[in-house]
């Protein structure tokens, strides 16, 4: 029964190679613009490779654990990641991830997958704003320390390679950070992405932390958020072993290449091209969700 005609096997191997290629490209693009692989992966899988969104998000969520853990191990060693800050905010992201993935399960059980397409599209379009506005100031203007600064010990220090100096910083408004992190976790569980942009927003904008600390700590947190959501996805059967396996490996490889090829991503033109891709995929996801395009 396992023996099949050569022609069929050829078709399967080609499809398998396409999945691998798509996930490598997604991981590569994601690491260049500082987004997880999922942002590009889920649209490419669902719009062009015919993967049902339920399995696309499952594979994507698992793959974000791989990229997060891979990248975080380097940043933790460089001492830029603020482990305390990350752990504190993970209470909210993991809680949000539980709520988000249970909402996803409810949505799929009621055959409302089009909602996921539309929300995904909207999230992609919102990311454009962050891409264009991002990091005008590498180090934020100091704000007055508040009660949470002291209570949660939101102090830190790191060596900035680009500025060639030690940067001392502290965070404020811990509670606002937690609220935003809850929604970041919820979006992660609902859409199967790392939702790193929202996490960075919580630290950068709400807690007034330096961009480097926000991005690396966000990356550090994505693993826990995604592990929480993934285990619920696992229980509901949203994870196809072959698809998830090839995606995890592909995205990991792609993001690894990305970090080697273009450290820093300072080039404006490339960023505009990626923004155009985000716009295109976002609009297409919404159209698919609305049933205008299949």
């Amino acid at each position: 029964m396992l023996r099949r005609g050569g022609k069929h096997r050829m078709y399967e191997l080609i499809y398998f190679a396409l999945l691998a290629l798509a996930s490598i490209i997604s991981g590569f693009l994601g690491s260049l613009v500082g987004l997880g692989g999922g942002t590009f992966l889920v649209p490419i899988y669902t719009l062009y490779l015919g993967v049902p969104i339920i399995y696309a998000t499952g594979a994507s969520l698992i793959s974000t654990i791989a990229t997060s853990s891979g990248a975080a191990s380097a940043y933790v060693k460089d001492r830029i990641t603020n482990v305390k800050l990350g752990m504190g905010l993970e209470v909210a992201t993991s809680g949000g991830a539980i709520v988000g993935s249970l909402i996803a399960a409810w949505v799929y059980a009621h055959h409302l997958a089009s909602i996921i397409y539309i929300v995904f599209g909207i999230v992609l379009l919102i990311q454009i704003y962050f891409q264009l506005e991002r990091s005008k100031f590498e180090i934020p203007k100091p704000a007055k320390p508040d009660r949470t600064t002291k209570f949660f010990k939101l102090y830190g220090e790191y060596y900035d390679q680009a500025l060639k100096q030690d940067v001392k910083y502290y965070g404020v408004r811990w509670w606002l950070g937690e609220i935003i992190m809850f929604f970041a976790g919820l979006i992660s569980g609902l859409l199967g992405i790392g939702s790193g942009a929202l996490k960075v927003l919580g630290m950068d904008w709400a807690m007034n932390l330096p961009m480097k600390v926000s991005t690396t700590t966000s990356n550090f947190m994505i693993g826990v958020t995604a592990a929480t959501g993934s285990s619920i996805y696992w229980m509901y059967g949203y994870i196809q072993p072959v698809l998830a396996g090839v995606t995890a490996l592909g995205v990991l490889l792609g993001s690894f290449i990305g970090t080697k090829v273009l450290p820093g991503m300072k080039n404006k033109t490339i960023r505009y091209i990626f923004t155009a891709i985000l716009l295109f995929l976002g609009v297409e996801m919404i159209l698919r969700g609305l049933g205008i395009m299949r």
Binding site: L2, H8, Y55, M235, G237, Y238, I239, Q240, V242
Partner: peptide, 14 residues
Amino acid sequence: TMAQLVNPHSNVNT
């Protein structure tokens, strides 16, 4: 079979 494993529409899942 290989086909069942690779096909994204099959119900081979967790």
